[in-house]
Amino acid sequence: MFRLQEVKYKDILYIKNLFIPKGKITAIVGESGSGKTTLLRLLNKLISPTCGKIFYNGKPLDEINSIELRRSVVMLPQTPPIFAGTVRDNLLIGLKFSEKPIVGDNKLLETLNMVHLNKPLTEDAEKLSGGEKQRLALGRIILMDPEVFLLDEPSSALDEDTEKAVMENLVRYTKAKDKTLIMVTHSTKVSEVFSDIIIEIKKGTVAG
């Protein structure tokens, strides 16, 4: 799905060769500051490599319209911001940004259930706790139904039980729908239990 050749980004990241397959769950692990988030940002085309090539489905990234790419390769940042408004507004904003059809409340509640967030759709999203906001943001991108999920520490603000429940649902969903999931994680447990492939980034290069 993604192939990186001689990709360099400033002095932060250098990847000689890397392949990330379709339909798998890939965990990117490594120390803080090793370049994991930079890799996700490159795949989402939020930044462009200083040199080298990134291919998505065989096509160079620089030949793909950035907005179109981001609508099928959606990224969730480590501290996802909450937009002004209710839980419903925050769930729907991804669909609005990507100009996809708006869904009904039943679908929204089903998504909230998948991320274990038991909150009314009318609740002010600003009042949610850190972990609840993270799950709301996760629900927001699940609703967008993209081809690829790029998740930066998706469960960092969750307690162990909630993390397990949310990750199990997410993995089940991606497998059932043949989606690709690439996640940066600090948690050895999350990477070992939930991922098919583990890529370790060490000081800006792929270590294993």
Binding site: L46, I67, R70, R71, V74, T79, I93, F97
Partner: peptide, 13 residues
């Protein structure tokens, strides 16, 4: 900046 980038990540123009 973060809010704008997050919107871009979601496919916003």
């Amino acid at each position: 900046k973060n809010l704008i980038e997050s919107a871009l990540m979601l496919g916003a123009t």
